[in-house]
């Protein structure tokens, strides 16, 4: 090891008292080492003087505020995620080390939450099924309406869509699922089916000329 290297930790007060005493003895005995030490010390003094006269510039206050705001936001997000239990949030090393054992009541509460979620899902599905199959019209055609609509939704970009489908979708936006609107829509479909639109292009017969009347 270069014998002059300990001069720097000595210069910057990083040596233990014993190490410093040992180096001071060597400095007293070795003029060359002493000269090198003095040169290093003079340059360091220059830097220290310069630093004292010209303190380090500080960062802009706005930058410091932005950093602290970011830290506060991150802490809030982390806290919210931890509270909701939505996603497993990595904790600090200290927090992980000191985390208390989980309360058994918390475990059972978590299980109950799961069961509640399943029950709620079943309830929603049941209500939906009931609404879907509710008596909205007398004919079997009406009951088949939902299955007839499904392809329209699934393939909105199908080539050459039926004009009736287009008109229907214009009357009933996809996002409008209100019960009354659904029922009205089904009634309209029943009326349309009874009016036999496929015969509209045939020549109209005057009502009074109908032989059945």
């Amino acid at each position: 090891m270069d014998e002059s290297l300990p001069l720097l930790p000595y210069l910057y007060d990083e040596l233990s008292p014993d190490e410093a005493a040992e180096l001071e003895r060597r400095l007293a005995d070795d003029p060359a080492l002493r000269r090198e030490y003095e040169a290093l010390r003079a340059t360091k003094e220059h830097l220290d003087t310069h630093r004292a006269a010209h303190p380090s510039p500080e960062p802009d206050e706005a930058v410091v505020d932005a950093v602290v705001d970011a830290a506060a936001a991150a802490a809030r997000d982390s806290d919210a995620a931890r509270t909701s239990g939505a996603t497993p949030q990595p904790a600090s090393p200290a927090a992980r080390a000191d985390r208390p054992p989980q309360d058994p009541s918390q475990r059972s509460a978590r299980r109950l939450q799961g069961v509640s979620a399943v029950l709620a899902l079943l309830l929603v599905a049941g209500v939906g099924w009931w609404q879907w199959t509710a008596p909205a019209g007398p004919s079997p055609e009406e009951a088949a309406t939902p299955t007839a609509r499904a392809p329209d939704r699934a393939t909105p970009s199908a080539p050459a869509p039926d004009r009736r489908d287009v008109a229907r979708s214009a009357r009933l936006p996809d996002w409008d699922e209100g019960d009354e609107v659904v029922r009205l829509h089904r009634r309209i479909e029943v009326i349309e089916s009874r009016s036999a639109p496929s015969q509209w292009n045939e020549s109209l017969q005057p009502v009074r000329a109908s032989p059945g009347r």
């Binding site: 380090s56 410091v64 602290v68 830290a71 506060a72 802490a75």
Partner: peptide, 29 residues
């Protein structure tokens, strides 16, 4: 650090920044 991470204490983080900002900024400058 612990106060910030465990309690979300933003003032603790501000103290950390204030304590070391000059050294860090001096180095970066």
């Amino acid at each position: 650090v612990t106060a910030y991470l465990e309690d979300g204490d933003e003032q603790a983080f501000r103290r950390l920044v204030d304590r070391h900002k000059d050294r860090l900024f001096g180095f970066l400058m």
